[in-house]
C-alpha cells in the first residue's frame, strides 16, 4: 500500500496533461502578445525582423513595414491570394507560416509588433544611375507608392512604402509580378502592380535608353534615397 500515493499522483497528472493538451488543440485564442507570436517568425526573419540568409534561403526584412500592409499580406498568405502559385517557392513557405497564426486577432497583434521594429536601412547602390531611377520612379511608381515612397493605404490603392524593403527582395518581387507568380484575379492589389512593372516600366526604360535590368537597378537605388515620410 506504500506505493499507492505516488501511483495515484501519476494517474492524476497524466489525465490532467492529456486534458490540457486536448484543450490546446481545440483552437482557443492563445492570448499571446504580438511579441510572443513573433518568436515563430525569428527563425527566418531574424530576431529583429531584419531578415536573414539561412543556407541558400534568403528571407526578407519585414521590420518597420506599415501594420496595415503587414496584416494585408499575412491575410493573403492565409487565404491563397499570395504565395500559392506552384512556382512561388518562398511564398509557399511563408504561406504555411502565416497559417500558424490563429485567427485575425493574432494576425493584427503580430503585425503591430513588426511595425514597431526599427526598419533596415540600405545605402543606395552607387553604380546605379540614380537620376534615371528618379525619372522612372516618378513616371511609373510614384502615383501609387508616393513621392517619398511613403505608401498609400487608400482602399483603392493600398500600395506599401518600399523604403524598409531590401533591394534584393524588391527585385525578386518585381520578377514575380512580371511572370504571373504574384498578382492574379484573386489578388486585385497585386494585379495593380502587374501591368506597371511588366508592361509600362520596360516601355519607359526603352524611352530613356535603358534595359529593363538597368531600370530595375536604378529604381532600387533611387528608392534607397527616399525617406518614406509623407
Amino acid at each position: 500500500m506504500r506505493t499507492s500515493l505516488p501511483f495515484a499522483f501519476a494517474v492524476v497528472a497524466t489525465l490532467a496533461m492529456s486534458f490540457m493538451s486536448s484543450r490546446a488543440f481545440a483552437g482557443d485564442p492563445s492570448g499571446l502578445s504580438g511579441k510572443q507570436l513573433f518568436f515563430r517568425c525569428v527563425n527566418c526573419h531574424g530576431a529583429d525582423g531584419q531578415g536573414l540568409k539561412a543556407g541558400t534561403l534568403q528571407v526578407p526584412s519585414i521590420a518597420g513595414l506599415d501594420a496595415w500592409y503587414l496584416e494585408g499580406q499575412i491575410m493573403k498568405f492565409r487565404n491563397d491570394t499570395r504565395g500559392a502559385h506552384p512556382n512561388d517557392t518562398k511564398g509557399l513557405m511563408m504561406r504555411a507560416m502565416a497559417r500558424s497564426l490563429n485567427g485575425d486577432a493574432e494576425v493584427k497583434a503580430v503585425s503591430a509588433y513588426i511595425a514597431s521594429l526599427a526598419p533596415k536601412v540600405e545605402k543606395p547602390d552607387t553604380s546605379a544611375d540614380i537620376k534615371r531611377g528618379q525619372q522612372l520612379y516618378t513616371m511609373v511608381c510614384m502615383a501609387c507608392h508616393g513621392a517619398n515612397s511613403q505608401g498609400n493605404p487608400d482602399p483603392n490603392i493600398r500600395a506599401p512604402s518600399q523604403v524598409a524593403l531590401e533591394s534584393w527582395y524588391i527585385q525578386e518581387q518585381l520578377v514575380k509580378f512580371r511572370t504571373g507568380v504574384r498578382g492574379s484575379v484573386k489578388d486585385l492589389e497585386g494585379l495593380r502592380m502587374v501591368p506597371m512593372v511588366r508592361d509600362a516600366l520596360p516601355l519607359m526604360a526603352k524611352n530613356l535608353g535603358a534595359t529593363l535590368e538597368e531600370a530595375d537597378r536604378d529604381i532600387l537605388a533611387y528608392i534607397n534615397t527616399l525617406s518614406g515620410k509623407p
Binding site: 504571373g180 494585379l191 501591368p195 519607359m204
Partner: peptide, 18 residues
C-alpha cells in the same frame, strides 16, 4: 490556380506628360 497569369488590363502608366 490562385496565382495563374492574370489577363491584365492594358498598361495604365502615368501619362508621359509627367
Amino acid at each position: 490556380l490562385p496565382g495563374a497569369p492574370a489577363a491584365s488590363p492594358a498598361p495604365a502608366a502615368a501619362p508621359a506628360t509627367q
